[in-house]
């Protein structure tokens, strides 16, 4: 399993796309915008600063991209090539490959989340997960929901390329609701309500609340739990090894 993880990590490093967009870009964007816009309280953002609103968006960016774009295209590609089937004839089986992919995405996303949170706090005065338990719970639920989403895409897409396209489209839609282009505070109330029922759109205010020392919000957490259950069941129902 260790060799499998290391090998998959090496292969991830050889893909410049996901490594850049999933890991370098969100941190770079936070630094650029943090240095130019700063964190002065702003009425249009609900009375808090830009960094306070933007940090949770960048927190979910990497997780979203790696789960929706990288994970499904890798798995569907491996299935398409017959690699999963080849693995299922060895003592490790194809299950361990699936596990290795999930572990890698979860660990890489976790690393980016930590970096984003620390940079936001120490460089730009963002909140540092003051309700740490609530913050951690939110992150864990976000991961389970997004990894299930990625697995579902991998289950349904016939090839790696289609998985990549479907995953990237889902990513942009979900990031829109998360507030990447228009912060949730600036959305109309109907749009914001819809956003709160999407996985990343529920995750962002939950992180923002927990970072400020509040409870993440039971509704937001329930939305994430709901997505995890439904998406994981669907992925389990439709997943094919060959």
């Amino acid at each position: 399993m260790k060799t499998l993880l290391l090998t998959e990590l090496r292969l991830f490093r050889r893909e410049p796309g996901p490594a850049f967009w999933g890991m370098v870009f969100p941190v770079a964007l936070l630094i650029v915008l943090g240095s130019t816009v700063g964190n002065k309280p702003d009425v249009s953002l609900g009375g808090v600063g830009f960094i306070t609103v933007f940090t949770p968006v960048m927190t979910v960016f990497s997780l979203g991209l790696l789960s929706l774009s990288s994970l499904p295209s890798t798995l569907a590609g491996y299935r398409d090539k017959g690699y999963l089937r080849r693995l299922s004839t060895t003592p490790v089986g194809a299950w361990r490959m699936l596990a290795a992919q999930l572990i890698i995405v979860a660990c890489l996303a976790a690393a980016v989340i930590v970096v984003i949170t620390l940079v936001s706090h120490f460089a730009f005065g963002g909140d540092l997960a003051q309700n740490f338990g609530g913050w951690l719970l939110t992150i864990v639920l976000l991961m389970s929901a997004m990894l299930s989403f990625g697995l579902l895409i991998a289950s349904l897409a016939p090839t790696g390329k289609i998985a990549n396209v479907a995953g990237s489209m889902s990513f942009f839609v979900l990031m829109f609701f998360a507030g990447l282009w228009v912060p949730q505070a600036a959305m109309g109330s109907t749009l914001r309500t819809i956003a709160h029922y999407t996985p990343l759109g529920a995750g962002v205010p939950a992180i923002q609340n927990a970072a400020a020392g509040l409870w993440p919000g039971t509704n937001h957490l329930l939305v994430l739990v709901g997505y995890t259950i439904v998406l994981a069941l669907l992925a389990g129902r439709f997943f094919r090894w060959e």
Partner: peptide, 10 residues
């Protein structure tokens, strides 16, 4: 097996 590939960059 017939037609079982490996990751391209392996």
């Amino acid at each position: 097996l017939q037609s079982s590939g490996l990751p391209d960059k392996l």
